[in-house]
Simulated assay, not measured.
Amino acid sequence: MLDTTRLTAAVDRFADRLRAAPQSRLQRGAAAEGLALARELSAAAQRIEAPDEPPRIMPDAGVFVVADQLTVAAGDLAEALRTAPSVAELDEAVRAVERAVTRARL
């Protein structure tokens, strides 16, 4: 079984920072970075779970919901990786989180 703690811990930290960020910071791009990452993680999970189907795009539910969307997407990917382990996919997801945090400037 693949240990996805690195992924969930990194996403939890980013989501907490998004939740604590002022609205102005979220609107200046932090929320967009969080949503882009949530969409990326969601698509990765869907590719693992249903490789023959095109991934559905996570909707934009607003700047105040993006942290929750990110947490859900990471949880879905972590579960998918537990059932179909891919260390490379896990490593790429963790790097994607790190890049998004840097771009969000939180």
Rank of each mutant, 00 (worst) to 15 (best):
T8G: 11
A38Y: 05
Q46V: 00
P22Q: 08
L37V: 07
L7Q: 13
A20D: 14
Q46A: 00
R39N: 06
A30H: 02
D12Y: 06
Q46R: 01
R56H: 03
D52P: 03
A15H: 01
L7D: 12
A43I: 05
R25Q: 09
G29I: 03
L41F: 08
A43E: 08
Q27C: 07
L37T: 04
A32S: 09
D52T: 11
A38D: 06
R47L: 09
R13Q: 13
L41M: 10
A9I: 09
I48Y: 12
E53I: 06
F14C: 04
A38E: 07
L41I: 08
S24I: 04
D16I: 02
Q23H: 10
A30Q: 04
R25N: 03
S42L: 02
P55G: 02
A31P: 09
A20C: 11
L41C: 08
P55K: 01
F14T: 01
E49Q: 14
L41Q: 11
Q46P: 02
L7S: 13
A44W: 09
L37G: 07
Q23P: 04
E33T: 06
P55F: 00
L37M: 05
A9G: 08
L26P: 04
A36P: 01
S42W: 07
A43D: 10
A10K: 14
Q46I: 00
Q23D: 15
S42Q: 11
A43F: 07
T8D: 15
R19M: 12
L26K: 12
A31L: 10
R13A: 13
D12H: 11
A32K: 05
E33G: 07
D12K: 11
R25W: 02
A20P: 06
R13S: 11
A10D: 09
R39H: 05
R25V: 12
A50Y: 08
G34H: 02
P51G: 05
L7I: 12
A10Y: 10
V11D: 06
V11K: 09
E49V: 09
Q27P: 00
R17C: 07
R56V: 03
L41N: 10
